[in-house]
Design a binder for these strands. Structure first.
Lengths: 245, 245
DNA sequence: GCAAAAGTGTTGAAGATACACCCATGG
DNA sequence: CCATGGGTGTATCTTCAACACTTTTGC
């Protein structure tokens, strides 16, 4: 199920069946594995995080990697990313955004794997979230210096894409509880963008988007004047709808 | 060399080597073909055009398709698109932009092919351009209603990407001769965007980009006051540099 | 009353749009 | 002299950034 295992299996299998001579006479036989890698973002403690798994690859011991898997022959590419997300988190009906496809020959040490990267945003504290193994951990984006394979590059590309999209589309929906204060939303944007934002300008800009409705409820449990709670008017973006331009 | 041929060969080959039982016990064996499709844009007669080839696929007789090929096992994904461009047009050192990867199971009638789309812009009248077969033709974007496979969708996606990028990056460099009038540049932008633009505002906007230098030469052969010629200050974007954000 | 964040408007700068006249050239 | 496009500037509007004070609540 792990991409590393699958690729190794495939590679060995091909090597058994074929000599170098056959390889050159039937180059099309020696195919390329297709995988997806999911950058699953979460948000906790005012930090943008990403769900990673400890690499069990010898070359990358002590490193973490993104969640990915090979695409099945009868499975749409988008569906594969959806499956990885579901298998790893138990979450369904979540927005996934295709970002880029990484196809360098040497990007995977065990064989040729072309991988399409997707990002997704999930609520770390959702009761639906069901991390299915102890090997998965949330890591603060800022703290990540190095990942297995080319996954740091993939992560960076996805972070950049996320940053470009949050002002035009309500993609952060899933990262917050149903009801939230504008301060919480602003802190989330600041965590994603890595900058601080002016409170008044931020509120004006968000108000213009018309994404939110203000509730007649106030924050609770805060040691200061409570803010009004808001919620998104629309349902979260899901796989089928995606971002409509 | 044609993707259609390669895919059929691969499919037959796999079928010969394997029974359904083996397929289910070694699903990873039955791999997915990886291809690239190039949307090669040109510009002629004030129209944005794309280079297409007559499909030799039975299901798509009378339809045209984009230029693509399978990615070789020892070839970077980007390099494959570069090779397709070179093989088809003789052009080297041309900017290619990855756009999106299309991976629906049923997108190719002969087997599973995941294809990454790239766009490129080339000068139809360049002396370097060497269309290597009579099967290739330039088609006006506006006139294209239907293409083979999912290529119409790929084309539309690439056109949209191109439209989004031309105001931020000097990607149209290759579509014009070395020296050109501002009117010619404006007509090109209008053809790509499918709108008309205000001449004064367009010139102001382009001037702010600081992409061009004005020459001490005038247009020739026009039946009106000749405009000053301009050229791009920078070299055309190429594969290695790409668009830096 | 104090700490902490909520809530709220205005001003200035920059960028975008709309718009009209005179100029240079070829015929 | 006429037709055609070259070349230019201004007024308006919108958008964005910068910025400060009063209010409400918990403690």
């Amino acid at each position: 199920m792990y991409i590393e295992h699958s690729v190794m299996t495939m590679t060995n299998h091909l090597n058994l069946k074929s000599a170098a001579a056959e390889k050159s006479s039937h180059p099309e036989y020696f195919n390329i594995a297709v995988s997806v890698d999911c950058v699953i973002f979460g948000y906790e403690g005012k930090e943008l995080k990403v769900l990673l798994i400890k690499s069990d690859f010898e070359e990358f011991s002590d490193l973490y990697s993104l969640l990915g898997d090979l695409v099945k022959p009868d499975e749409d590419l988008d569906a594969a990313s959806y499956r990885v997300l579901r298998e790893r988190t138990g979450l369904d009906d979540v927005f996934l955004q295709q970002v880029h496809t990484f196809g360098a020959v040497d990007r995977h040490p065990s064989g040729r794997v072309v991988s399409t990267a997707y990002y997704s945003l999930v609520n770390i504290n959702s009761h639906k979230l069901n991390i299915n193994t102890n090997d998965l951990h949330w890591h603060s984006i800022k703290s990540i210096k190095k990942l297995a394979f080319d996954h740091k590059k993939i992560l960076d590309t996805c972070v950049q894409m996320l940053q470009e999209q949050i002002m035009d589309h309500p993609v952060v929906h899933n990262l917050l509880p149903e009801k939230f204060s504008l301060r919480a939303l602003q802190e989330l944007y600041e965590a994603i963008l890595g900058t601080s934002l002016d409170r008044r300008n931020f509120r004006k800009k968000i108000a213009l988007k018309n994404w939110l409705s203000e509730l007649d409820e106030l924050e609770e449990g805060v040691t200061h004047r409570p803010g009004k709670l808001h919620k998104f008017k629309t349902k979260p973006l899901n796989l089928l709808k995606g971002i409509s331009k």
